[in-house]
């Protein structure tokens, strides 16, 4: 199906009382990179990862001594739970009547990544906890959500796009919050070493995983 179907109708102004179904400023188009099954798979990966993230944030609240960070984690915990709920509700609309079936990590490496990210528990490891979430996982969410939003059909998959936009807004806000918290905690060369070494270790696993939805998270696999 061509992408020009909207153009002709939009410019037909011979009868002034008849308006074109797509206004001149509405440039949305039909083509998209994902069919229903692929969209459901991705959404299932999103839901699983958002779940793991909100569980981790909720669990860590009791383990961080910094009061401002404790409160931020509690706030962010809900935002990611809400994203998980959005994806949970989207799955049946994508022909997956048993959402739990697709609520899964993209691959084993992704599961290992979450295990490694959630490993720090000691009260002295706030830097490691925040690095995993705000310097590794959330940037990957922003990447995967952005790629999905920009490549799915703007018309057939509008409900997913709407949820992606809501989620992305939160991800950007949380990323900024997390980066500010980290910059305020990282004060010495040793802090820098801790942050970068932990980030590198987690990035290794994330690269192996290929991102939130596995290889192809941000474009076709070369």
């Amino acid at each position: 199906m061509g992408a020009d179907t909207t153009t002709d109708t939009a410019t037909d102004t011979s009868r002034s009382h008849v308006r074109a179904p797509f206004a001149p400023w509405d440039r949305r188009d039909l083509p998209g990179s994902f069919d229903v099954a692929e969209t459901a798979r991705r959404v299932g990966n999103y839901k699983w990862t958002e779940m793991k993230l909100f569980e981790a944030l909720g669990g860590w609240v009791a383990t961080v001594p910094e009061l401002d960070i404790k409160m931020r984690l509690g706030t962010h915990c809900y935002r990611h739970a809400w994203h998980a709920e959005l994806w949970h509700k989207r799955l049946p609309e994508l022909r997956e009547m048993k959402p739990e079936r697709l609520t899964a990590p993209a691959n084993d490496a992704m599961e290992r990544f979450v295990a490694a990210m959630t490993e720090p528990e000691d009260s002295g490891l706030t830097i490691e906890k925040l690095v995993g979430v705000y310097r590794v996982l959330i940037p990957r969410f922003i990447a995967a959500y952005t790629y999905h939003m920009n490549n799915t059909s703007e018309i057939t998959d509008a409900p997913t796009i709407r949820s992606l936009k809501f989620a992305l807004q939160d991800e950007f806000d949380d990323w900024r919050d997390g980066e500010l918290m980290l910059q305020s905690l990282i004060k010495t060369p040793d802090d820098v070493r801790r942050a970068t070494e932990h980030q590198a270790a987690l990035e290794d696993i994330m690269v192996e995983a290929g991102g939130i939805t596995g290889p192809g998270s941000i474009g076709p696999v070369q």
Binding site: F54, G58, G74, C77, Y78, H80, A81, A84
Partner: peptide, 15 residues
Amino acid sequence: KLDMARQAWDEARHV
């Protein structure tokens, strides 16, 4: 679980 996460946000605001 979702309700508990929501409650966490509420309690964070209360703090």
